[in-house]
């Protein structure tokens, strides 16, 4: 199994970042390459289905959505991914900014590079959207 980590410091309060990152329904609005997403309650829990830019659908089981820790975790299930855990942590820096850490653990290893690369790009897009909303520094 391989692990990849991407992070970005956002010049917005942690609660503001968490309001976006903790909402599983809106990922397609800030994650380039995800064209659509939908949610469904299943026997295993809440499942988010995303559609990639290539048209490929992926099911993701929501594992953790903890507003106190500000931690969001999910697993891609099926496809070529044998194992996956995506973890997003929003860490309050107590100066009206926060650190967002997006970790990807995956097997096959190559999928960590593929997904991890996309998460880095997504954090840049998130920064662009949130900081342009507030006029904050980039």
């Amino acid at each position: 199994m391989a692990t990849i980590r991407r992070e970005v410091r956002l010049h917005v309060p942690a609660d503001e970042a968490w309001a976006v990152l903790g909402d599983p329904a809106t990922i397609h609005q800030w994650f380039p390459g995800i064209e659509a997403s939908s949610l469904e309650e299943t026997d295993e829990g809440l499942v988010r289905t995303i559609t990639l830019g290539s048209g490929v659908p992926l099911a993701e089981l929501i594992v953790t959505n903890d507003p106190i820790l500000r931690r969001f975790q999910y697993r891609i299930t099926g496809g070529v991914v044998r194992h996956h855990l995506g973890t997003i942590d929003v860490i309050d820096l107590h100066d009206d900014s926060c650190l967002v850490v997006y970790s990807t653990d995956a097997e096959p290893d190559v999928m960590a590079l593929v997904i991890g690369g996309a998460t880095g790009n997504a954090l840049h897009e998130l920064q662009r959207q949130l900081e342009s909303d507030t006029g904050g520094a980039s």
Partner: peptide, 14 residues
């Protein structure tokens, strides 16, 4: 730009 692109993010592929 990279070839491996299931997200369809890269300009050459798009």
């Amino acid at each position: 730009e990279p070839f491996m692109d299931p997200f369809g993010r890269f300009n050459e592929n798009r």
